[in-house]
Nucleic acid binder design. Structure first.
Lengths: 161, 161
DNA sequence: TTGGTCCGTCAACGACGCTGACCTATGCTG
DNA sequence: CAGCATAGGTCAGCGTCGTTGACGGACCAA
């Protein structure tokens, strides 16, 4: 009867929520598959991509900061960082103020790989944005942000400056 | 100079794309963490959740259909299905028309677990939808769909009927 | 009967999470 | 300076979940 009332909550039905859940599942697969292919060629995985991404975003970041950003354990991250440093994609220099810290950065080779991964992922994102339009993009980001936990959202927004 | 022209492409800058990429990363983590907690209690992982979800969505689905929906190998899926059937969460009966097929379905216990997982995930989704509003939700889904490969999108939309 | 399909399984491997424990180097504070 | 806290590295071990390769059985269809 009042199905078509202005401002009704039809977008909150279990059916609509299910569609959103499945959309997240399928879209995330698409989102990762292009970089995954590049990574596989070099024997790396998604964890390497994430590390490269955030080190590239925040050059001079410390291991500890990366740990909380990525939300993994020290051991997991260390395994990845070790291979990236051995392959000379990431450099670490001792912190100036605090010599316990390791300030991480991408080497030129690291930047090259990061750029390749980033380009692949951005290309898909760009075509999706273009296809959906600016208003859809604004909504897309609003929902994703609302989905995050408050502390996660804070870390996410720290990168928006 | 023409920065603020109507219909400009400012939403397609690398910076905007980067924000979308990071939003996907953080949001997906949030998206999975509630069910992950429930699964961990029972010694299951995400793969079990995905199988339960799609078997629940399409009762009577075959192993082969599930394989293409989930996009994993037979061996990966079989390992998961074996434990789910051993734990009596999923049932398989021989197909009527084609006796090579196994028609999968959730047992009552399987439905109970699927409901628990689904409830947790929907709760987060619901609050995100509510917080972002119906227009944002429409945009959210439009962008996610545009991100999928055509065949993936077809499979996704097969579940929208 | 033959060839293809659907499914299950053995073996092996790799990426990537985890816990627990222990180590060094360094900073800070009393 | 002594002692504790912090940043980081590492060893050992485990589990999930993805992969390839190979093979076998049941079944369908020509």
């Amino acid at each position: 009867m009042d199905d078509h009332a202005e401002g009704d909550l039809l977008f909150l039905t279990d059916e609509q929520l299910r569609r959103g859940i499945e959309a997240m599942f399928f879209a995330y697969r698409a989102f990762t598959q292009d970089p995954d292919r590049i990574l596989a060629e070099r024997g790396y995985g998604r964890a390497h991509h994430r590390a490269l991404h955030f080190i590239g975003r925040f050059p001079g970041t410390t291991v500890g900061q990366l740990l909380t950003t990525l939300g993994v354990t020290k051991q997991s991250l260390n395994r990845v960082l070790r291979t990236l440093m051995a392959d000379d994609l990431v450099s670490a220099r001792v912190g100036e103020r605090d010599r316990r810290e390791r300030r991480l950065a991408l080497t030129p080779e690291g930047e090259a790989l990061e750029a390749a991964l980033s380009d692949a992922q951005r290309a898909r994102m760009r075509q999706a944005y273009l296809q959906a339009g600016p208003e859809a993009v604004a909504g897309f980001r609003r929902v994703l942000e609302a989905m995050m936990d408050p502390e996660m959202r804070r870390r996410y927004q720290d990168g928006q400056r």
